[in-house]
Design a protein around this nucleic acid. Structure first.
Lengths: 140, 140
DNA sequence: TTATAACTTAAAGTTAACTTTATGTAGTAC
DNA sequence: GTACTACATAAAGTTAACTTTAAGTTATAA
């Protein structure tokens, strides 16, 4: 009795996720897509589970996690319930890390906002002279 | 008549900014620190202006700007008022870019928060079974 | 049956942003 | 004078995350 399920080709997946074919193959080679199977002709067929892995890869990449750590996480998922605590800990640490990044990003944005005002004024003045005098700052 | 001003050694600057000495030398070589001078012995002496450049480098790096674009900006500052509009435009575009990054980061955080709850429950259950059933999701 | 499109692999190449290595110099402490 | 520390340079090495290249296979359409 063969299980029938909807699957996708690497080309379809590349389009869906806006990734290049070599990138997806690279992720597969690196072990980032657990349980990804090939048909009798050796062609990859992506299940919903595999698409879920890719979604998670995108999330973890966005959080700044390196490929080898994403791989580690994916390997843990293959270990089942035995690795639940490791995965829980990973996400808790990642959360703290991402919060720090967002704080840094907010500071960066504040500086950029300041610079936008600074250069907005300087541009309409035609010179940095007055706006620079106004704030006694010389950060280029 | 020699101008007297407070300057810092590369070692002091490295400590202040928590950067390695080779990194600072690399930035200098790449033209990221305009007007950085050396004393008669060929040793770099950092002025307040140079520290300002380093501060800005940190900000722009944090915004995800590549070294070559930071260099471009620094070269523009050397052109004076003629480049004010270019610099203004740069910061306006950077602002939009950073806002996009923050939005992406917020989405990432939401996913991670969800995963924290998911694995928190799964860990106390000792299995993913129930929490997985509860949400009809199979994202690893 | 021949062309085309969509896939396959292994291996080499690319790029950014440093880091390391090797070698040398300048100034101070003893 | 000799050791030590802090600096200098040029050039080679490193790492991550892909990308490119070269060569081959499979399935469908004309």
């Amino acid at each position: 009795m063969e299980e029938m399920m909807i699957t996708y080709s690497i080309g379809e997946v590349a389009e869906k996720f806006n990734l290049s074919l070599p990138t997806i193959r690279y992720y597969d080679k690196e072990g980032l897509i657990p349980n990804l199977r090939k048909n009798d002709a050796g062609v990859r067929r992506f299940t919903q589970e595999n698409l879920g892995s890719l979604q998670m890869i995108e999330c973890l990449k966005n959080a700044g996690m390196p490929i080898r750590d994403i791989k580690q996480f994916m390997q843990w998922t293959l270990e089942g319930n035995a690795s639940l605590e490791k995965r829980y800990k990973m996400f808790q640490e990642l959360r703290v890390n991402v919060l720090k990044q967002m704080e840094a990003m907010q500071n960066t944005l504040n500086t950029i906002d300041f610079k936008c005002k600074y250069y907005g004024q300087a541009t309409s003045d035609g010179t940095e002279k007055y706006v620079k005098e106004d704030m006694h700052l010389e950060i280029s």
